[in-house]
Structure formats: structure tokens, C-alpha cells
Design a protein around this nucleic acid. Structure first.
Lengths: 143, 143
DNA sequence: TTAATATATATGCATGTGCAAGCATATATA
DNA sequence: TATATATGCTTGCACATGCATATATATTAA
């Protein structure tokens, strides 16, 4: 009988391990952080390849201020540019550049491989097998 | 058809939301961070209420240096003390104090309530329902 | 015994994050 | 029109964390 708090912690650790594994590959192969990649992916899927800060913030599950810095990072690399929102001068659009789309597509091609490898690696630990199996199933039943 | 990377991200967001929710309650009611609580819990379960840095690091899934600072925090609050390891002078034991055990037990009583509330809150978002249901089941089938 | 290597912990530094506050702009009401 | 409040974003700050490295002790090989 494992205490509740530790089960949940293990679950979190599994998720984190998978994410870290993916993040490392993403960083190594494409020089991209995982959050950065997700932002690019979201922008790439958005109509006109642009999103407002709030939308990004909500889609990424990040604080608005964190998104400000995230977009700063992306902009510095030339993956996005900021554009004023004509209808609401308070608003700011983050727009994917050609370069941004390119890197997103390159990284996207590798992503599934990273995920599969990460899941395998984490589930090589006997304790994690059941959790990983559930998460894996959950992942594929939704995608 | 949702892309793989976004499914996984949502899963992570769900886990994070639950954790944040619990962490906030823990902080508000007991002045404890979630990691701090887990460390106390692990110490409380350990034989002689003591663990070495490395053990904590591995159990918490944290970098060893992070554990050094974590233990610093706990020590500053009087929840633990450091003790030298007689057999290996490199080693350091972190030992739960009476005060530490006390706070751990108090917080522990509230923990399950926090978790249940957090799961409910997160699953009030329709998009998260399936994921939460799975995690909930996973949680209880292990504890 | 000495030298080289390995292990356990601590420290310096960089980073991503959240929170609180600030500024500019929008919207509602007097 | 004028004032009050809400909204969207940015900035300053604090903090937990990871990585690289330093230091002390153990272990192993020559």
C-alpha cells in the first residue's frame, strides 16, 4: 500500500522524465526547448500563423509573463515577430516567420520518435511500467 | 485528431494543475511547499526518520544539488537536522525533528482532501475529464 | 604506501517560472 | 465629455531547479 501522495509524485516524475528526455533531444538536435517547440507548433497550427499572448498563455498553460519571455526568446532567434493588433491597440500578435515554420517542421518530424524513445526508456524502470502503459494508451487514444 | 505533442502537453498540464492546486493549499494551510512536504513524508517513512542526500535525491527525482538546498530550507525551519554519517565521512544524514514530524502529520491529514479537490477542479474542464479519470484510477489502484 | 579514480556533498552560475506592480489602451457609466 | 474600472502586456523581483565544478573522503591499482 503506497501512500497517495507518493503515487501521484511518481506519476509526475514519469511525466517529467519523459518531457526531459524529449526536451534534451530537441535541444541537442534542433537547439529548441520543449516549451519553445510547443509554441512554434501552436503558431504553426493557428490561422495566419499568429496568436495573441493570452491565447498562447492559455494554450501552453503558462503565466502571461512567462509567455512574454518565451516570445522574446523566439523573436531573438528569428522564429517569430511581433505585430500590433489593429483592432485592439493593447494586443500583440506573435507571428511565425518562415524560419520559424521551417525549424518547427524539422523538429516536428523527429518529435514522435523522441516520444516513443522516451516512453521506452522510462518504462525500462519496472516501477514505472504500469503508469507508462496507461499514459501511452491515453496518448494514442487521443491523437 | 490531435497531434501527439499536444496530447502529451495536455497530460502534463493536467498533472501540473493538480500539483499546483495541492501546493497552494499546502502553502496556505501549513506554509509548506509540495517538494518540502514530500521530503518530510519520505523522511517520516524512513527507518530512524533519516535519509542520505542521495537517497532523497533519487526518491524525489531531483538533482542532488537541489536536494542540498531543499534540506537547507527544511533545516532553517527546524524540521530537520543534519547528522554526519559515521561509516562514511562524506555522507550526510538528514534527520526529521519532532517539529518536522508534527508538521508532516498535520499536513498529511489534509493531503488526500487537497488531492480530491484538485482532481475535481481540474476535471471540471471538459477537455481534461478523460485524462483525469485515468489518472484518478491509476492513483487509487496503486495506493 | 602512493597515486589515480570514484563517490558524496556543497557552491557558483544560468535559466525558466510565477507573482505583484506598472503602463497603455478599452469599455462602461456618470 | 469625463471618470472609473477592466483588459493586455511588460518589467522587477524572488525562487526552485539543473549543470558544471570544487572539496572532502573512499576505494582501487601500481
Amino acid at each position: 500500500m503506497i501512500p497517495l501522495c507518493l503515487v501521484w509524485q511518481r506519476m509526475k516524475n514519469v511525466v517529467d522524465s519523459v518531457e526531459n528526455q524529449i526536451a534534451k533531444n530537441l535541444q541537442y538536435d534542433h537547439g529548441l526547448g520543449l516549451t519553445d517547440y510547443r509554441a512554434l507548433r501552436l503558431l504553426s497550427d493557428a490561422s495566419d500563423s499568429e496568436l495573441r499572448m493570452q491565447e498562447l498563455s492559455s494554450l501552453l498553460g503558462l503565466n502571461q509573463s512567462s509567455v512574454t519571455r518565451l516570445v522574446e526568446r523566439l523573436e531573438k532567434r528569428g522564429y517569430t515577430i511581433r505585430d500590433l493588433c489593429p483592432k485592439d491597440k493593447r494586443g500583440v500578435y506573435t507571428v511565425l516567420t518562415g524560419r520559424g515554420r521551417e525549424i518547427q517542421e524539422l523538429a516536428g518530424k523527429d518529435y514522435e520518435g523522441y516520444l516513443i524513445a522516451a516512453l521506452d526508456m522510462v518504462s525500462s524502470n519496472e516501477e514505472n511500467k504500469v503508469i507508462v502503459e496507461n499514459l501511452r494508451q491515453l496518448t494514442y487514444s487521443h491523437s
